[in-house]
């Protein structure tokens, strides 16, 4: 009888509002869950394996898979597979690259353009970053930085379009030049390396600015004051202190801008012209035409990936060594 009583009491308790178990408590008390939790996390090692499983799978399949597959396709003579045809291995796709100026010229143009754009971006954004980090009062820095950030949230296409309006024959620049009486006929900025450069720098400047800013912001003001105390002039202070200490920011900013600017496709199509074709357009061409061009596109993409990664690798290595020399 007592048993029955306690049963009803329990029931009353469970159904009373607010008398229920917390969700997580119920989960932890659940027998099935306990067994699961016990088997999955029995040892530290097993727990680590559980934690590592998805990220490692993701890295292998999503990050490495596409690249490995791309290299592999580059060695096939035909892809996507056709019915009744067994693709054969070949080096022809790789060799083709070296045999035709139509491929080599855009390739080196891309690398050269990216290099030039990177340097120009560095030169433009360094003073901006320096001004932000050293001359703007700390409590205003966020506001000043935000002002620069807003345009960068807008997408690639919209911003490219904005540059088209700016530089067009009836664009703002030509309008201003004309009204100043400097020109009679509009200057054809568009569809040249110049318009492409303006566009790419417009798109990538942030990737330079942010690393520079965070590197410069970390340099304590008293380093510069101490150097000034020791009689170092403005130029010496810059060359001997600011520059070496912002080296890391320069390295990562340049790497990012270089890698990103080699990868643009829409911007060169919209802003560039026949004399400024970049390798991205060459590669894309293989995937537009229906048919058997994928292997060549894959091989070319692989060549470009190797080239850009090698270039940044060499650059970072040089920066590492040069930087150490500079500090000494």
């Amino acid at each position: 009888m007592a048993h029955a009583e306690s049963d009803t009491a329990d029931l009353g308790k469970a159904s009373a509002p607010g008398g229920r178990m917390n969700f997580w408590g119920a989960l932890l008390q659940n027998g099935a869950y306990q067994t699961l939790s016990n088997t999955l996390f029995k040892t530290q090692r097993r727990q680590f394996v559980m934690l590592a499983s998805l990220p490692l799978l993701w890295i292998v399949f999503a990050n490495l898979g596409p690249i490995v597959e791309m290299f592999w396709i580059g060695f096939l003579d035909s892809y996507p597979p056709k019915v009744g045809y067994e693709p054969k291995l070949t080096f022809a796709n790789w060799a083709a690259f070296f045999q035709d100026r139509v491929f080599i010229v855009p390739f080196f143009r891309t690398l050269a353009f990216s290099l030039i754009f990177t340097v120009i971006t560095l030169l433009i954004t360094y003073p901006v970053a320096y001004f932000l980090a050293k001359h703007v009062k700390r409590k205003n820095q966020l506001l000043f930085l935000l002002l620069l950030l807003i345009p960068f949230w807008v997408g690639e296409i919209v911003r490219t379009y904005a540059i088209m309006i700016l530089l067009g024959n009836n664009g703002a620049v030509n309008l201003v030049l004309k009204s100043l009486g400097l020109i009679d006929r509009p200057i054809p900025f568009m569809y040249t390396g110049f318009s492409l450069g303006v566009g790419i720098i417009y798109l990538t400047a942030l990737y330079m600015l942010l690393p520079l800013y965070s590197a410069l912001e970390k340099i304590p003001d008293n380093y510069l004051e101490a150097a000034a105390d020791l009689g170092a002039g403005a130029w010496t202070r810059f060359r001997r202190i600011t520059l070496p200490l912002s080296k890391e920011g320069i390295a990562s900013g340049c790497t990012l801008v270089f890698l990103i600017s080699t990868g643009y496709y829409a911007t060169p199509v919209l802003l560039g012209g026949p004399r400024s074709t970049v390798f991205a357009e060459t590669i894309a061409g293989f995937f537009h035409v229906a048919g058997d061009q994928w292997p060549m596109g894959a091989a070319f993409s692989s060549i470009m990936l190797i080239a850009t990664l090698a270039a940044t690798g060499i650059f970072l290595k040089l920066m590492g060594r040069g930087g150490k020399g500079m500090i000494r």
Binding site: R20, N22, W24, G25
Partner: peptide, 11 residues
């Protein structure tokens, strides 16, 4: 207490 599965009013 929640994780021990105590009901709300006991908590």
């Amino acid at each position: 207490l929640e994780l021990k599965g105590e009901p709300r009013d006991e908590i």
